[in-house]
Nucleic acid binder design. Structure first.
Lengths: 235, 235
DNA sequence: CAGTCATGTAACTATATAGTTATTTACGGG
DNA sequence: CCCGTAAATAACTATATAGTTACATGACTG
């Protein structure tokens, strides 16, 4: 009923407007009303934030639609539903960090420089992409039940392990690193030190009464990670 | 509600049980039907699990009531609401770990032994109390907004820092540790390595195709933490 | 230049969810 | 032994929330 009214009044106003542009404007790059890519990207970005901040269960579909400034129906149109959207966010997050990492090219540096580069990159990436850590956090809270669905996740990570492995081998030959280190353990240690500080800094700041979000504290912790990793690798 | 059936069978079984202790035992700890302490403890335990597993936003009050096998009304009676219950869970979690820690008495050991003891304790505590890490995770996702409300949290932690500080000083004097280490950084490193492995093992297992929940992997990581910390402390 | 379909909107539905109200029941002091 | 009260229950309410339906429209293609 109310729709009939709306429809009518709308088609009327359109008739009126139809005359307008013909008179007033040229075909300039007006922001396109209908843009599938823009819309779906906006949804994904908004969903990433919402899921990272509130977790899977705490995230609200309506809140995502509002953040993206799109109609909720579009979210279902492009992604199917909350679950599928979450999976898209999850995969997108891993693809993003692994792509950035792949641009590092550690093999053209000395082992020590390469390792430092990897640590610094990881630390900076975590720092600049808080939503990545948030997504990991909520995904792990659910024991990775959604990540397991994703087939192409493993192949995304083998290059990383190979890269670190090469770095370690070269470091042993050069006498910079001790032998027998597990590349996965090394990566996990780097990630652990970086991730824990950033994700837990809110409770840590409270319990130790020390503002860990200050730049000086953040910089100091970045240095600390390097020291710890190099101490561990020292022959 | 579907609980009607349960309730009926419950009051029956309690009637039966009520006779039992009278015959068998002194007027001690028979399972009282109306037991404020038991009920509120059951609620707190159930809430801890629910919040740890699903996060603050994902936790459901009805689910907590069901887990605790109590009527939802009791939850409001004892705790006031979801928020207040969550705060109780949060405080309880910190009190529990700090109390256990306080029983360590590190000062009667050699610095190296004391440090090893602290690392092993922390690792084991995290391992045995997964809900603690879950609570921290969801609390940090909310930037510690509830923890900040808790006044008595800081004083709970200063003894820990003092204890580590003493350990480090003695270690420097004994020539076991290098000087200039920050006790808070040391503790955070221990916690980081332990916490990250356990909370993130689900996604890590998936991306590295390696079952990190296996005992051998868990034990190996425990050893790894010790190695990393001692490498860092080495003069 | 008309028809078609991807893009978009508003309003709706069924269920879930936090919190309440009205009421009953067991415990223990007098 | 009985009565006031704390402990417990069931049934309810208002709102939030995931997901849908019905319809509109702009842009592109044949």
């Amino acid at each position: 009923m109310s729709e009939a009214k709306t429809a009518k009044s709308r088609s009327k106003s359109v008739d009126v407007e139809a005359a307008d542009p013909a008179v007033s404007s040229a075909p300039v790059e007006r922001p396109r009303l209908r843009d599938a890519e823009r819309t779906s990207k906006a949804i994904l970005a908004a969903a990433t934030k919402e899921f990272a901040e509130r977790g899977y269960g705490g995230a609200r579909v309506d809140a995502i639609a509002e953040r993206a400034k799109i109609n909720k129906r579009m979210l279902y149109h492009y992604f199917g539903g909350k679950d599928a959207l979450y999976v898209a966010v999850l995969e997108g997050s891993y693809v993003a960090i692994r792509s950035a990492e792949a641009r590092l090219d550690l093999s053209h540096r000395s082992p020590s420089e390469g390792m430092r580069e990897l640590v610094v990159f990881t630390w900076k990436y975590f720092l600049d992409h808080p939503e990545f850590l948030g997504i990991l956090s909520t995904e792990n809270m659910q024991k990775a039940r959604f990540l397991k669905r994703s087939a192409r996740i493993f192949e995304l990570h083998s290059p990383l392990v190979a890269e670190i492995s090469g770095l370690l081998d070269r470091g042993v030959v050069a006498g910079d690193f001790r032998s027998g280190c597990d590349p996965v353990k090394i990566y996990m240690s780097i990630a652990a030190l970086g991730s824990f500080f950033l994700t837990n800094r809110w409770t840590l700041s409270t319990i130790f009464q020390r503002n860990l979000s200050e730049k000086s504290e953040i910089d100091a912790w970045g240095e600390h990670i390097i020291e710890v990793i190099f101490a561990y690798l020292r022959p």
